[in-house]
Design a protein around this nucleic acid. Structure first.
Lengths: 194, 194
DNA sequence: CCTACCGATCGGTAGG
DNA sequence: CCTACCGATCGGTAGG
């Protein structure tokens, strides 16, 4: 039970830290802020984490882990046509950005604040995620749904999607699904094949 | 002459600060670092700028000013067809991102560190720039070159372009022009009309 | 543009 | 998980 509680406190801190890192930025978020929201003293934080860096790494790792799981699930459930798989992947990406918004904003903005150790650990998760994208994009290119160089297309599409965290309003009129539809419409040239 | 030198020192500081803000981030860049690269003592910085915030604002303002000027020039020189204007705008955007890379990376990453005063000052420059994009995108939509909702398309395109600062390698095989061509190819549906 | 310095605050630790 | 505290460093200022 002690372990369960410790783990749940850890998750709570990750959630709190993610929110603070978004609002204040990593550098301006002090261990005292995080401790206060946890209801403990600042020194006690270091019972859960070695240092501030480790908290940053945990926040980003949590977000990437969820993103990877959701994308795999979406691809498993999608029908086998390249169009359906592209749709599913775009939708999964946007849904992840929204449900784990704070973690992903931190990943996008504070990646450079990671030390080498944390970065090399997270880079494997990122590579696994991008490998899924590579597969889906390449299939869509082969099927003639999209035009362009595989690597460039992947980068452009991920850029367009990741940029949404800057302007998308979850309270607004657009659902993640309709937004996904809009992006796919913009880049596909032969919708009947999907 | 004193004024000229003061202004040139100011520009030098803006360039130095931009580079440091990219490498270290705004919060981790100390006034002492900037002063050292200027060859002066830290206290002397405040002869040129009221505070650190003002330096951040100046860096971003410089980049936006150049972006706006280059975009206007490109549109003036482009032929009147929607395809040519879209091409020119994408190319100008990428060229600006490269020539003023540091300033734009700072604008993209450190925008949230601006105080309200600076932000409202810069927001007008950004709006003017986005108005050019709105025009060009709407023309391309009307001409049937692109498909989708005007606002969404604009956001997707700008996202894809701005994201390039994360991966584009100026020493690599791709020129800004060929990259521009790739993006336009990906999103246009009726190239013969351009 | 410099010297000398300030009050505040930071991440992290020792010992319980 | 707390108390008490550390050395370092920060942005900025006063007076020249």
């Amino acid at each position: 039970m002690t372990l369960v509680n410790a783990s749940s406190r850890r998750k709570e801190l990750i959630r709190i830290a993610a929110r603070l890192f978004v609002v204040e930025g990593f550098d301006r978020t002090t261990v005292r802020m995080m401790a206060q929201e946890m209801g403990i003293k600042s020194g006690s934080l270091f019972h859960h984490f070695r240092d501030k860096q480790e908290i940053l790494c945990a926040v980003i790792e949590e977000g990437m882990h969820n993103a990877l799981a959701l994308a795999r699930l979406a691809l498993d459930e999608a029908s086998a046509t390249p169009g359906a798989r592209l749709d599913a992947m775009v939708r999964a990406h946007l849904e992840t950005l929204l449900t784990d918004r704070n973690a992903h904003v931190v990943a996008l903005y504070e990646w450079r604040r990671l030390d080498n150790e944390s970065r090399s650990h997270l880079v494997h998760l990122r590579d696994a995620y991008e490998a899924l994208w590579k597969q889906v994009i390449d299939e869509a290119l082969d099927a003639g749904l999209i035009r362009g160089d595989p690597l460039s297309v992947r980068r452009f599409v991920l850029g367009a999607l990741n940029w949404t965290v800057r302007w998308y309003d979850p309270e607004g009129p657009r659902s993640p699904e309709s937004l996904a539809r809009e992006l796919v419409t913009m880049i596909t040239h032969n919708p009947s094949a999907s």
